[in-house]
């Protein structure tokens, strides 16, 4: 049936143990499992900047002098932080999907006369469907992944917004006052003085957030993406010889042990990199860490 990677794999039941495992670990299913680690990394790579963008928007609007905008920014930050994230993950994916389709429906099919909610069905005109009914499978998968990224970005955007809002307030007030004394407008002072300076104050919070984001990735499973948790459950469950060439008992514990180790290594590596960056950034800064560096280098007290 399958063009096996190793030709010996055609009849696994006769193989010695190590060969059996070599074959077992290279089945198409396992390759999909390995690929799903890539999905997790991809999610992180896309979500981190997206969440930062959301957070920046939230922090900037929370600082706004226009009251409703400021309330909106603060409300967003407060609500997302007050409610368990998992509830958002379960809620947003359906809500976003239906919201997008409804918007497209309103735009593309103004003449549609049937109700959108027919009993339990959520029915929009075919042209408004996301993705279109005729789209190939990969478009559906990408769309699902995109919804997941957006959900992550909304939730973590609020956390990032909180960090950035704090960082903006940590920039010494006289800096802005001086800028305004030099005749800069609000906007200019914000972009030229505040934003460049806030990063060093934001970095500890953001690195914490990064670790948190890594540890939130298994929730992808709840969003229906074929991620590492999905495959670990699928592969680990006991299999009978009738439906697979590789029957085995309940191995879920071992698969989840692999995931556990993966995350431990990943967070450890991140921690090491972030410490380095932090050391770099605090160099020469008028913060406690910068001061400590200067002292340990033997500078004047």
């Amino acid at each position: 049936m399958r063009p096996a990677i190793f030709s010996v794999c055609s009849d696994p039941s006769t193989l010695p143990q190590w060969q059996w495992f070599a074959c077992y670990l290279t089945t198409g299913k396992h390759l999909a499992f390995y690929g799903s680690f890539g999905v997790v990394l991809l999610l992180l790579a896309i979500t981190a900047p997206a969440a930062l963008l959301f957070g920046f928007g939230a922090a900037a609007s929370a600082r706004s002098h226009f009251a409703p905008l400021s309330w909106l920014g603060k409300l967003y930050i407060a609500i997302v932080r007050g409610v368990p994230d998992i509830a958002f993950f379960l809620f947003f994916v359906i809500a976003l999907d239906q919201g997008f389709e409804w918007l497209r429906h309103e735009i593309k099919c103004p003449d549609w006369d049937q109700p959108i909610r027919q009993g339990n069905d959520f029915v929009v005109c075919p042209a408004a469907k996301l993705p279109l009914g005729t789209a190939p499978q990969w478009v559906h998968e990408t769309y699902g992944f995109f919804l997941a990224v957006l959900t992550f970005a909304i939730v973590f955007g609020a956390f990032a917004g909180n960090v950035l809002y704090g960082a903006m307030r940590a920039v010494p007030r006289p800096q802005i006052e001086t800028a305004e004394a030099y005749g800069m407008s609000h906007r200019q002072a914000f972009w030229r003085i505040l934003v460049p300076q806030m990063w060093v104050y934001a970095l500890p919070g953001l690195s914490n957030l990064w670790m948190v984001l890594i540890k939130a990735t298994p929730l992808l499973f709840l969003l229906g993406v074929e991620d590492i948790v999905y495959w670990a459950r699928e592969l680990g469950g006991s299999k009978t010889a009738r439906f697979t060439d590789y029957p085995h008992g309940d191995w879920r514990m071992w698969y989840f042990l692999v995931l556990l180790v993966f995350y431990l290594v990943f967070t450890r590596l991140s921690e090491m990199v972030l410490t380095r960056i932090m050391r770099r950034l605090s160099h020469g800064q008028a913060t406690a860490a910068g001061e400590a560096q200067r002292r340990s280098a033997g500078g004047p007290p």
Partner: peptide, 11 residues
């Protein structure tokens, strides 16, 4: 709870 699309083959 919404589980989208777990991909499989186009056939």
């Amino acid at each position: 709870m919404k589980h989208l699309i777990l991909g499989t083959a186009l056939l």
